[in-house]
């Protein structure tokens, strides 16, 4: 076992942590080293997807990555967004502008307890942002949402509002083409 330095970009800010154990899970790094607790431990085993963050790839695409089964050092040099990085905050830390997905989830009462909400926000955001690069066909829309959100567990809501809200955002942003 060894400790090593970790450098990454976290919610747009460069972050350097000198001592990070080589086998530390990213989720523990976010929680215990960065005090970012919005990425949630649900199963700790890569099943429920409550812990996912967004990684922005050099080619302009983005993807969700499960932090409970992925080591912190996997993210070396990568650009990472967590749930805490979506909304614009005022100086006091209050949200003043939500992302389109966050806004719609709120308006549609998409979540109840909200423990899984960060994972759903990240997954839906990845879908929306990738659709901004390559719009979805109407006939593929529901399938694309199922593919993006389908692995995420929610125990409170029955999923309906998350799915409908995501569909609405894609439509509202003009990311769904006929066909």
């Amino acid at each position: 076992m060894a400790d090593r330095k970790l450098q990454l970009t976290l919610n747009g800010q460069p972050v350097v942590t000198e001592v990070v154990p080589d086998d530390l899970a990213m989720l523990d790094y976010l929680h215990e080293y960065q005090n970012l607790t919005g990425s949630r431990l649900g199963c700790g085993q890569g099943i429920c997807h409550a812990c996912v963050v967004i990684v922005d790839n050099p080619d302009g695409t983005c993807e969700e990555v499960r932090t409970c089964i992925t080591g912190a050092h996997y993210f070396e040099g990568k650009k990472v967004r967590t749930i805490e990085g979506h909304a614009q905050l005022d100086d006091a830390g209050n949200p003043v502008a939500l992302s389109p997905i966050q806004q719609k989830f709120v308006e549609r009462f998409a979540f109840q307890c909200s423990y899984c909400a960060p994972g759903f926000v990240n997954a839906a955001t990845v879908l929306v942002e990738n659709a901004q690069r390559k719009p979805l066909k109407k006939s593929e829309l529901e399938g694309a949402i199922e593919a993006s959100l389908g692995h995420h567990v929610c125990r409170c809501t029955g999923y309906v509002r998350y799915y409908e809200a995501t569909r609405d955002v894609l439509g509202d942003l003009g990311l769904v083409k006929e066909g």
């Binding site: 970012l36 607790t37 919005g38 990425s39 967590t82 749930i83 805490e84 979506h86 909304a87 209050n94 949200p95 939500l98 966050q102 989830f105 709120v106 308006e107 009462f109 979540f111 909200s114 909400a117 960060p118 926000v121």
Partner: peptide, 12 residues
């Protein structure tokens, strides 16, 4: 929307 929604959706 729920009165607790903003904090929740921001991962607070």
């Amino acid at each position: 929307f729920r009165n607790d929604a903003l904090s929740k959706v921001c991962g607070s």
